[in-house]
Design a protein around this nucleic acid. Sequence first.
RNA 1: GGGCCGGUAGCUUAGUCAGGCAGAGCGAUGGACUCUUAAUCCAUAGGCCGAGGGUUCAAAUCCCUUCCGGCCCGCCA
Length: 533
Amino acid sequence: MAEIIHWADVVAEDVLEQRKENVVATGITPSGHIHIGNMREVVTADAVYRALLDMEDSVKLIYIADTFDPLRKVYPFLPQKYSEYVGMPLSEIPCPCGNCANYAEHFLNPFLESMKKLGIEPQVYRADELYKSGVYTEAVKTALIKRDEIAAILSEVSGRKPASDWSPFNPICEECGRINTTVVTDFDIDSETVDYTCSCGHSGTVFMQGGGKLTWRVDWAARWKILGVTVEPFGKDHASRGGSYDTGKLISREIFGYEPPHPVVYEWIMLADKGAMSSSTGVVVSISDMLKVVPPEVLRYLIIRTRPGKHIQFDPGLPLLTLVDEYERLNQADQPPDYNRRVLELSKASGICHTEIPFKHMVTLHQVAHGDLEQILNILKRAGYSTDDRRCIKELVDNVSNWLDMYAPPFAKFSVRDDLPPQTATLSDVQKAFLAAMAEVIDEKGDMSGEQYHNLVYQAKDVGSRIHSKMADILECDETELKVNPKDLFKAIYTVILGQSSGPKAGWFLSSLESDFLVRRFTEAFRYEPGDQ
RNA sequence: GGGCCGGUAGCUUAGUCAGGCAGAGCGAUGGACUCUUAAUCCAUAGGCCGAGGGUUCAAAUCCCUUCCGGCCCGCCA
């Protein structure tokens, strides 16, 4: 069988057949919380970018925020007074929280922050700045002059016939500030101005530079040429026949004389039980919410291991734990298979936090320490982990903490009981004798490693071991007659500490608890009489 | 009405472009480690590759039809 090549490398190879210098572009409209589906776009772009970098290509990664698009409606998360801003460009609307430069920045900032956490640092452009700086002006002129040709393409490819007063350019009304209520009446190429009338009653003249924007389908194509875009991932909504990529392709070639970028079409991310992520159905998990739970590398891994054309099922419950495990296991493998090695390479990124502490361990630890960071650090130190990188450990602790709060299935949860649980009544004499013997040994030795605890439990079944003979003494029976099943011993431990019959891997679990506490609890359990409570 | 993507083991999937013995991980089962518990290692089982037809010496892969799931266009981007 032929060697399996990662999809990002396949795209990179295809692209390199066309050109040696590339610009990978990605873009999103910051009209609301930017969700995980949008993140597939940037991670996909980043994967292709990295693949191109690895082939010693000259390549840039850029991100364009569509800050000049109008606000479409008063979204549910907006105060009603935003109705007065509907139709105005996002960059010209005040920020909902009052602390950001404008509406667009309010949603853009957390997203840029999330990208940084994911190790993605593209060159960022804002559409309003691009228009205001004048780089679009030539394209605006061309579009206005070739208005009829563009209209013909749109009508032919998309099947939609633009209205007679349609223009590829939407001026911003100087009176009411809206961009979607104006009609172009004339334009002057030399003075670079456009005349318009607005439904608010105003009519006037704006500069092509910053006075408005091209409509989406034309804007997209113009942007390719202006920024030299050669590769661009986009959602399947743009990919269907007659969709914006189809029209953009023709507009780019025939109007702007630019070869359109190599498309990378990606599928939606499905949320378990809730269906596709979509703003209109309200099924939205923001990227920052997602990063509250999933370590960044794992989120990258989830996206990068899956071909862009496939749905991604994302279940933040138990399957997330499996995913994290899978990633960590792969990460520790000496020689992962080729395909996975590549997936792993592309999932890692500089600047991403990474610790050697397994997620599952932290799930146990966090619950033992009731989420207290200092205590967690102490236990980690005792277990021989490096605690130098507090920031990254803290990040993991936060991930685990949020996971336990929001998604953890019941069996993954436990709490160390403050008092001896009543279930202690169900223990047999052998189990109690074992706990008493454990208490003695722990009292003598102090804190032990997870492995030592683990071995201790198993030694209890061996005739001749110290713990075994202690048990025999306590039970006042002959050592050789004492039959012990380790299974019952583990159960006894979980019962007296957690009040349940199973729990996290015992050695590691016990070593994360204070030895004094264990001695006290085990002794108490030994002395416990059902009538006591 | 038109179009796009997906359907491969119980689950998640690779392989489809470029036809050549269907591969992995998880889970399950069995075993090992002087140690089954949410650890590690080894092994085993599990598949009409959604269905039907066609092309071919040879089809998961190419062509046609069809079913299922998801989505898009026909408002706007």
